[in-house]
Write a protein that binds this DNA or RNA. Sequence first.
DNA 1: TTCGGCTTAGAGAACGTTATACAAACTCTC
DNA 2: GAGAGTTTGTATAACGTTCTCTAAGCCGAA
Lengths: 347, 347
Amino acid sequence: MEQGSQRKKRVTITDVARHAGVSTAAVSKVMRNAYGVSAAMQEKVRAAMAELDYRPHAAARGMRGRTYTIGILLDNIRNTFFADILDGVRDELRDSEYTVLIGAAGFDAEAQDKTIRSMVDRQMDGLVLIAPGIQRSEVLATAQSTPTVVIGHHDASDLHDSVVDADGSGASLVVDHLVSLGHRNIALVSSPGTRASKWARTPEIVLSNGYAEAMGRHQLAEHTRICRTSYSDEGGYKAGMSLLTAGDRPTAIMTGADVAALGVWRAAHELGLRVPQDVSLVGYNNTAIADLATVQLTSVDQAGHDMGATAARLLIERVEGRREHAVQTTMTPRLVVRGSTSVPPAV
Amino acid sequence: MEQGSQRKKRVTITDVARHAGVSTAAVSKVMRNAYGVSAAMQEKVRAAMAELDYRPHAAARGMRGRTYTIGILLDNIRNTFFADILDGVRDELRDSEYTVLIGAAGFDAEAQDKTIRSMVDRQMDGLVLIAPGIQRSEVLATAQSTPTVVIGHHDASDLHDSVVDADGSGASLVVDHLVSLGHRNIALVSSPGTRASKWARTPEIVLSNGYAEAMGRHQLAEHTRICRTSYSDEGGYKAGMSLLTAGDRPTAIMTGADVAALGVWRAAHELGLRVPQDVSLVGYNNTAIADLATVQLTSVDQAGHDMGATAARLLIERVEGRREHAVQTTMTPRLVVRGSTSVPPAV
DNA sequence: TTCGGCTTAGAGAACGTTATACAAACTCTC
DNA sequence: GAGAGTTTGTATAACGTTCTCTAAGCCGAA
């Protein structure tokens, strides 16, 4: 039976049809719950499918229509905020027939472009792009041919749906908290906008504006200082080094991502500075690490799980053609105060 | 031009052929660097492809042969050890034409099965399975039809390649270290073997055996205690609670994953126990969190990046038919001592 | 009856590639 | 300059689906 030739043939729709004594068209109809199948036909075909353990070949389906695949693009798998989003997507699609596949492209715009194109070439039914670092025009072009949800960027478009967090209010929450503790010299570590990517309202821009606006509201405009770096441990470390060795050292640093805050913390540690005694530190995203016993990082909760679930729901609506017009959903952030923030050091 | 119909047509091989004034077969040959194309033909076709911005349709390719897609199966995206492995895979495949897609299936065996099947149905060229929790027979069946590399499980097979860490030695390193500090009551937190999955030598089994063997070597067999839980923050927390509230409380706990160690730490913290003064704690994998300023977790480095790169290399060799026989690669672990281990508390 | 309408099943043409088989056009060599 | 070989390009049949047609069968009304 098992001959040397390693591949045993797949069971195809033709096999099912033959086994059930019907046409392939009939089998296809049953699979798709299409109109025009008798109860008897239903049963015959389903029995044959079960008996042969038939699974439709997604690649072949892709030639004609859908592949029942959703692609998720993210830059850095280490940012556990994305894991929260991902859990949301997975939970939403758990009982559907869609498969979720993740492309972790890194921060490089070209690699992200390549990954998105790969997903489109694989005929994925829909894409969730988490704060893509590529040209806006690229995203719009993709969205024109494939249903797309953008998470993070506030720029709305009628070509794709958006799920965002009210990052401006998030920044306000943090600044207000720090000011109430007595801080005045508050710096922000944010992500570098991809140069000339034509996104007018990336999360980092909205966050920065919110920060600047809040600082102004507290008459602290002169202390406004933004350090740009990638949201990673290494990026945070560099930003921390730069800020904490500067002449006019901030007494508090807020960051746009927990993962970057931890990098700042590492830098502070190396410089012999204690958190929060010497410098207060605030993260963003309220990931699981923030709550670790030894970390206890004050952070802003963004409801990543809800964002992911919402994105998935919106995407499927579009994929299945149940909605025509684009939608933007905004989540409200919430400050979670922990041990990494306290009153500024007495000078 | 742009009519209301949203989808603009893809550029296909036929378009390229027409544009270059040749047959589709010729274009296909050029793409695949197949035998029998003149230099002139090469140039003509490449020019046409560039001019039209042609990209082959992966789904269509899948109908005939390869899709140039590698699938990676992992359980939990939050375990950053997997991120190390993934980086290795990515780096190895960076300049190839392969795309890496990740399926994060969770711990549930059925979900993992479903994800693997999805990957096969999508005609992926090869799979990397990171410590799969499913039946061994399922993996073997998959490997029979699709080139597969298994990371983690020590059970070798001539159907798939393997990349493993010498987990037994890793356990030894930890036990030896703890004993040299004066510990005797050392517990292990490991992962539950998937019941009846027929893997004889999962990482957790090899680790457990190494631990038991090392304990025996130090005449500490009576203190051998293994607590099984999933490698996640929550799993670690539960295990920690159970071990640290038990009558005969261990003075040191080693875990099979950093992420679980952090959960144990959280439990210790809640119980008012300090690390390392009251209990020493050792992780596994030496992920980035272990090195955080405020964490400083003693851990075992597994060279995740190398494991990933090796897995990718082995896989491509198989996909491209350059190797017939299966291979097992073993990495050597290395202990990284940090602040979470010290002498046991004086009783 | 005959006809129109409705339901159900199947034939067959895509979809975008790959790869085999072959024809045509060149090189040699004697 | 004839035959034998070698290159080079193309025609075409898959691959496993989906989906539009059309045909067949049945029902009921006129």
